[in-house]
């Protein structure tokens, strides 16, 4: 398009301005699209919602305030409630931990087949990638509800649902980590005559495992939330306790359970952040 000679300032300026103008148009269009989406979506929401937006907004604080009032009225007994639901909480966390671990093992197996640099057969790679896509596309709840219906109320359906989702979600991240592993350390070790196992042990695993563990920790956090929600629809643990006390309208106990949940999630967040920071080295 351009000749060999160096571009003059005028041309550069002209191109730059054209680019800036094009960008401006694009941003303008996307902002318009977003505004349109927002306004039309909120209109639809307002039309189809059971209560109107304004009335809801005015009532927003009623429920939490009621709950807190009840919690204050119950006084010291409230602390007993916190301990009463501790076993439920532990069972939920255990459910999440086990399914994360189990799912991570499946994910590891799947990811080995989904990494281009390990498997040369294009079909196997595509097949396992599609498998992972399907596994993680189902919301946990959908799988859990079907299994709950078929197997009766227990923790197992929730575990199966979380394992399936985790295998898909982690598998994708794992295979990306494997594919992004740097080839140079492997070549370096190979050049000093390292065996296959030594190359894997000292060049691949150190690159990949910290990432694996950090992804798994992130998943653990997500899965604790998920297993609470699944408990809410009948899979046991603290979720089920919460749904029970909500039905009975025991405000003080609702607050106790919510308190436990929030504390768990926040502390898990800090704990996994700390561990990840130590593993990957950058404390983000």
């Amino acid at each position: 398009m351009y000749s060999d000679n160096i571009l003059g300032f005028e041309t550069i300026e002209k191109n730059l301005k054209a680019m800036a103008f094009k960008r401006l148009i694009y941003s303008f269009i996307s902002i318009l699209a977003i505004l349109f989406l927002l306004s039309s979506g909120l209109t639809i929401a307002e039309e189809n919602n059971a209560g109107s937006f304004q009335r809801g907004l005015s009532k927003f604080f009623d429920y939490p305030v009621d709950l807190f009032k009840e919690a204050f009225e119950s006084g010291w007994r409230w602390y007993a409630y916190v301990f009463k639901y501790l076993p439920d909480l532990i069972s939920t966390i255990n459910m999440a931990f086990f399914s994360t671990l189990f799912g991570a093992i499946f994910a590891l197996l799947l990811s080995l087949f989904a990494s281009k640099n390990l498997i040369k057969n294009q079909y196997i790679v595509t097949l396992s990638r599609r498998t992972m896509d399907i596994l993680r596309s189902f919301p946990e709840l959908v799988i859990a509800m079907i299994f709950l219906y078929l197997m009766g109320k227990s923790e197992l359906p929730a575990v199966i649902a979380i394992v399936i989702h985790t295998a898909g979600a982690l598998g994708k991240l794992f295979s990306e980590a494997i594919e992004n592993a740097d080839n140079k350390p492997i070549e370096g070790l190979q050049s000093c005559g390292a065996s296959w196992w030594q190359r894997v042990r000292f060049a691949v695993i150190p690159q990949v495992v910290p990432l694996f563990i950090s992804y798994t920790l992130l998943r653990l956090e997500i899965n604790v939330r998920a297993s609470t929600i699944l408990g809410f629809v009948g899979a046991g643990g603290i979720g089920e306790a919460l749904s029970a006390v909500i039905q009975f309208r025991y405000g003080d106990e609702i607050i106790a359970i919510m308190f436990l949940l929030v504390i768990t999630i926040i502390s898990l967040d800090y704990f996994s952040r700390f561990l990840r920071g130590r593993l990957i080295g950058d404390n983000k």
């Binding site: 929401a45 189809n48 209560g51 809801g56």
Partner: peptide, 9 residues
């Protein structure tokens, strides 16, 4: 509780 069942929730 505030908005009832619907999109806003």
């Amino acid at each position: 509780r505030a908005f009832g069942p619907g999109l806003f929730t």
